[in-house]
Simulated scan of single mutants.
Amino acid sequence: MTGAIRGTIVALGGGGFSMSETGESAVDDWLLDLAGRRAAAAHPHRPAPPRVCFVPTASGDSRDYSERFESAFAGRAQTHVLSLFGQSPWAYADPSMLLSMDLVYVGGGSTVNLLALWRRHGVDRTMREAAAQGTVLAGISAGANCWFEGSSTDSFGPLAPLHDGLGFVPGSACPHFHSEEGRAESFRDWMRTGALPSPGLAIDDGAAAVIEDGTVTSVIAEAAGAHASLITGETETTLPTTSLT
Results as ranks from 00 to 15, higher is better:
residue 211 I to Y: 01
residue 40 A to R: 15
residue 188 R to E: 15
residue 117 L to F: 06
residue 74 A to V: 04
residue 184 A to K: 13
residue 180 E to R: 15
residue 1 M to G: 13
residue 145 N to F: 00
residue 22 T to H: 01
residue 230 L to W: 14
residue 152 S to I: 07
residue 234 E to R: 10
residue 4 A to E: 15
residue 143 G to N: 06
residue 173 A to W: 12
residue 228 A to G: 09
residue 178 H to G: 09
residue 233 G to A: 03
residue 223 A to L: 11
residue 231 I to Y: 03
residue 168 F to I: 12
residue 209 A to E: 08
residue 188 R to W: 01
residue 42 A to C: 02
residue 148 F to R: 12
residue 66 S to V: 11
residue 135 T to D: 10
residue 110 S to M: 05
residue 204 D to L: 00
residue 185 E to F: 00
residue 85 F to I: 01
residue 81 V to W: 07
residue 82 L to F: 03
residue 44 P to M: 00
residue 54 F to I: 05
residue 184 A to I: 03
residue 104 V to P: 10
residue 100 S to F: 05
residue 47 P to N: 02
residue 116 A to W: 14
residue 140 I to F: 03
residue 57 T to G: 08
residue 127 M to E: 13
residue 205 D to M: 04
residue 54 F to R: 08
residue 195 A to T: 11
residue 18 S to V: 09
residue 173 A to E: 13
residue 235 T to F: 06
residue 177 F to D: 13
residue 52 V to W: 02
residue 158 P to M: 00
residue 124 D to N: 05
residue 241 T to P: 02
residue 231 I to A: 08
residue 25 S to V: 04
residue 153 T to L: 03
residue 220 I to K: 12
residue 116 A to F: 10
residue 239 L to W: 04
residue 14 G to R: 06
residue 18 S to W: 14
residue 165 G to R: 08
residue 116 A to I: 12
residue 110 S to R: 07
residue 147 W to I: 02
residue 67 E to F: 08
residue 33 D to Y: 07
residue 142 A to W: 01
residue 89 P to F: 00
residue 201 L to W: 08
residue 42 A to D: 03
residue 163 H to Y: 08
residue 35 A to C: 09
residue 154 D to K: 02
residue 20 S to C: 01
residue 217 T to N: 02
